[in-house]
């Protein structure tokens, strides 16, 4: 029983990380039809910068981590907004080219990070409490999972609030539903594009700093390897659906944890099979609508 509980909660913790990456991907795809391959780079860059600033302020303490997280969020948002303004906007409505540009950026930036910080992972220090465990009904849950779950829940809540309560949220929701109609009504959706990119980048940036806490290290390839899972989560959840991404993130991570424990470390394989199964049964994903792109 305690094993199942442990797997379940660590699974949700990992799912929280997947969600932070996948939420931005899903929103961006839903509104603009762009599958953003550079998303992993936002995450890695935020992880590195958050760590660099955090350790200079106060290494291995809560204050350092908090500042690192803020720096990560800002880095992710700025990097994403620049990507949108400089590269994506020029290729407006040419989806294949937009994907190709993000592919190129993803490859180039990872190489650049390797050049700056080296290709080997760097161990990082974190607050002592995060390295300990909490006993819940006999299961020893690593404390960093609580941080992940809390942050992801907060991000989910904030994004939902933004989408439901603000003017731009309304435009974005309408744009996901029917972009042509929104444009026809005389609303400039391009500013919404930049905002969506910045929000997605901010979530990924937070994810980058939290990923470095989760894995205990920062590495140039961290974002890319998480990105593949985030893609799978996005597709299973239904491209463009935020709640779909949240559900799929938890589902994928829990499946992964259970398969790793009970089926001899076949977690990655189980995730891929889950993706194939979902796509074959319901090609639009769990909560996806019929795509018009």
């Amino acid at each position: 029983m305690s094993t199942i509980l442990l797997l379940l909660i660590t699974g949700v913790g990992l799912g929280a990380l997947y969600f932070l990456v996948a939420s931005g991907l899903s929103l961006i795809y839903g509104l603009m039809g762009v599958l953003n391959f550079a998303h992993g780079s936002f995450l890695t860059l935020a992880g590195f910068l958050g760590w660099e600033v955090g350790r200079r302020v106060s290494d291995g303490t809560w204050a350092g981590l908090l500042i690192g997280m803020l720096v990560g969020i800002a880095t992710g948002a700025i990097a994403a907004a620049i990507t949108e303004l400089v590269f994506i906007r020029k290729l407006y409505n040419r989806h294949i080219e937009q994907v190709l540009v993000t592919v190129g950026l993803g490859l180039a930036t990872v190489a650049l990070f390797e050049g700056i910080w080296g290709s080997d992972p760097i161990r990082i220090a974190k607050p002592a409490w995060l390295g300990q465990t909490t006993n819940i009904l006999g299961a020893n849950i690593p404390n960093d999972r609580w941080l992940l779950i809390g942050c992801a829940a907060l991000v989910l809540g904030l994004i939902v609030l933004f989408l439901k309560k603000t003017k731009y949220g309304l435009i974005i929701r309408a744009g996901v539903e029917n972009r042509t109609m929104v444009t026809a009504l005389g609303i400039d959706v391009r500013r919404a594009f930049t905002i969506v990119f910045a929000i997605g980048g901010a979530a990924a940036g937070l994810g980058g700093v939290l990923a470095s806490v989760y894995y205990g290290q920062v590495a140039a390839h961290q974002g890319t390897s998480l990105l593949i899972y985030a893609f799978i989560v996005t597709v299973i959840g239904g491209l463009g659906s935020l709640s779909g991404a949240a559900i799929a993130a938890v589902l994928v991570a829990v499946i992964q944890q259970f398969a790793n424990f009970y089926l001899g470390g076949t977690g990655d394989l189980a995730v891929v099979l889950a993706l194939a199964a979902v796509l074959l049964v319901k090609p639009t994903g769990l909560l996806g609508k019929k795509t018009t792109h």
Partner: peptide
């Protein structure tokens, strides 16, 4: 030195330029 000593960085940026300006 750092960007120039990473072949994949140069090739990646070249690729981005090709996609944007010489489809």
């Amino acid at each position: 030195r750092i960007p120039l000593s990473e072949p994949l960085f140069i090739l990646g940026m070249l690729f981005v330029l090709v996609v944007m300006f010489a489809p």
